[in-house]
């Protein structure tokens, strides 16, 4: 029992990162209705961006967050406008294949350019801890947790309160209708892809201080992100946040009691059960 509390707290900090990755995925899914297979690869690319920015300028990953978020927003926008959209021809399977093709290019491009070496950064405060109820929470994880909450909040306000947000919601609900009232649907698609990619950049900034980057690193997070999105309800922001936190905790507790190897099954079992019995997720409104 004495392990349970630290495990839960740690699960929450890990889950917060899952939530930020999933926020991006759920935004893209909610509006474009596509499963973005390049999401993990974009996360990997963002981790390299954080790494090289730190190596070149010494800039702190947290300070780099706004810069990278803007840069990756632009990247996502361009990918949607110049690659995904022209390839789609209105077919879901083509969009899926396009994101798969992008993933292949990014993964192997990273391998060719930066080799397969594992890279990490060492921050002076990486080993500082915050003591919460007798548990040691590494400072970078604590920062990540609160930053993730902040990011989710900002996104939620942006979607609820701004014109862009209203347009996004309109397109998500009824794309033909949105087009009729003068919303540039293609632009909104690209904005969503851009925002989703910016989320990934933010997650990378929060993750790298306690993690590493290799060309394959994205795969460690893709399935968890999918699960989070399904758990929370595809397209739902509060769902992604709660889903991410919940999944972090489930993973930590299942790992503790079932062992880390079988503990992974916990995630997939939840995934399958939610898909079967409540495919709209915890917060989803509309059935498929």
């Amino acid at each position: 029992m004495e392990l349970l509390l630290p495990a839960v707290l740690n699960g929450l900090t890990t889950g917060a990162i899952y939530a930020v990755v999933a926020l991006g995925l759920t935004l893209i899914y909610g509006v474009l209705h596509i499963v973005n297979f390049a999401h993990g690869s974009l996360l990997m690319l963002a981790l390299y961006a954080v790494y090289f920015l730190h190596a070149a300028t010494g800039i702190d990953p947290y300070a780099a967050l706004p810069i990278l978020a803007v840069g990756f927003f632009a990247l996502g926008y361009v990918i949607q406008r110049l690659v995904v959209q022209p390839v789609s021809h209105g077919k879901d399977q083509n969009i899926l294949m396009a994101t798969l093709g992008i993933a292949i290019v990014i993964d192997n491009g990273a391998l060719a350019l930066w080799s397969s070496n594992t890279r990490t950064i060492d921050l002076p405060y990486a080993f500082d801890v915050v003591e919460v109820l007798g548990a040691f929470i590494p400072l970078p994880k604590a920062i990540g947790f609160f930053a993730a909450l902040g990011i989710a909040g900002v996104l939620w306000i942006a979607i609820q309160r701004t014109d862009l947000g209203r347009a996004i919601r309109a397109v998500a609900k009824e794309r033909q209708g949105a087009r009729l009232v003068g919303i540039r649907v293609e632009h909104i698609y690209a904005m969503c892809f851009g925002l989703g990619t910016a989320c990934v950049a933010a997650a990378a900034c929060l993750l790298l201080p306690t993690f590493y980057v290799t060309p394959q690193v994205g795969y460690a997070f893709v399935l968890v992100a999918f699960t989070t999105v399904v758990l929370g309800g595809m397209g739902s922001f509060p769902g992604a946040l709660v889903g991410g936190l919940l999944l972090g905790v489930v993973e930590a507790v299942a790992g503790l009691y079932l062992g880390e190897s079988l503990g992974q099954i916990g995630i997939f079992v939840i995934f399958i059960l939610v898909l079967l019995f409540r495919p709209t997720g915890l917060f989803g409104a509309k059935a498929a």
Partner: peptide, 20 residues
Amino acid sequence: PGLNLVLYGVVLVIMLRFLP
């Protein structure tokens, strides 16, 4: 390592673009 798969991915996307 990897460059061949980059080329593979690029051609894949181009094929999808022109042969939907």
